[in-house]
Design a binder for these strands. Structure first.
Length: 280
DNA sequence: CCCCAGTCCTGCGGGC
DNA sequence: TGCCCGCAGGACTGGG
């Protein structure tokens, strides 16, 4: 479930590791396979051990650890991955460990219950190709109205599935797509090419408002309690959700109406049919 | 090119 | 009570 706010929280949680030196890198017990780690463990040793962490960034929903060798470790948590500097929720699903020296953290851990996540090691050119503008759109947090219209203004798709397309905008997932459209007052089935400039402006503002607030609350920890920050603490934004997982409950903007759940491209969408109009 | 369905994976909750 | 099935949705693949 980690989307932009959760991954940004992970990034901030390990940011103080900048300047630390990597003492070892380990794949943890094989009984928690499969977790794809590319390339081979030997290559990891050779290219990573002894390097210093120069910067920690984010590429959409991935944490990027930049080394002084100009290589990047990319942590892609997908559904249930966590990046931790303290003991994980369980030892069973601990997948990967970076031991550090010379900074505040002894280690950075990667834990993943379902194991859908991935970890990559890229040289700068590989990274730029992999996450270049062809593969990954502008970061949703700072995207402008002009960029939104450039990316999706001509598309005949419905807006909600389009928000999940990482080539259009990087970082939005299923939860925040519904939240953003409710704040913007846009119907999830509205076609992109039918949206007015005023609606794109509303979408831009809503995206920034929702994602920034979610970051301030350190992300959303849903009912299963999986998502945690780097210190294994829950996020708080789930208490601010307007529509997500709230089918049948009153709309926060028009309390006499109830939130509806529909399915678009095999994924749940939550919205209010009264204040999210299909027409402008 | 554009878009959608299928795939991976685990834990949980509903139904019987 | 115990079992089975469906569902949750990240990113990617294959195909219409």
């Amino acid at each position: 479930m980690p989307e932009l706010p959760e991954v940004e929280t992970m990034r901030r949680g390990i940011l103080a590791a900048v300047g630390s030196r990597i003492q070892s890198v380990q794949r943890l017990p094989t009984h928690c396979q499969p977790l794809e780690i590319v390339p081979s463990p030997r290559t990891w040793q050779r290219r990573v051990v002894g390097r210093t962490i120069r910067d920690i960034g984010r590429a959409g929903k991935r944490v990027v650890i930049w080394l002084d060798s100009d290589e990047a470790i990319v942590l892609e948590p997908r559904m249930t991955g966590l990046v931790l500097v303290v003991d994980p929720p369980t030892t069973a699903h601990l997948r990967w460990r970076l031991r550090l020296a010379g900074g505040p953290f002894a280690e950075i851990l990667y834990w993943d219950r379902r194991g859908l996540g991935k970890i990559y090691l890229y040289r700068r050119e590989e990274f730029l190709h992999r996450y270049g503008p062809q593969r990954l759109g502008p970061d949703a947090l700072t995207m402008t109205t002009t960029q939104w219209i450039q990316q999706l203004g001509q598309s005949r798709r419905e807006i909600k599935p389009a928000l999940l397309d990482q080539r259009a905008a990087a970082g939005i997932g299923n939860l925040y797509a519904s939240e953003i459209l409710h704040v913007a007052g846009i119907h999830p089935r509205r076609r992109c090419h039918d949206m007015t400039r005023r609606q794109w402006e509303a979408l831009t503002a809503a995206t920034q408002r929702v994602l920034q607030a979610a970051i301030a609350y350190e992300g959303s920890t849903l009912g299963d309690g999986t998502y945690r920050n780097a210190l294994n603490k829950r996020g708080g934004y789930q208490n601010q959700h307007r529509v997500y997982n709230r089918a049948g409950q009153p709309c926060p903007r028009c309390p006499q109406q109830t939130i509806e759940r529909i399915v678009q491209t095999q994924r749940s969408t939550f919205f209010c049919a009264t204040c999210q109009l299909r027409k402008p």
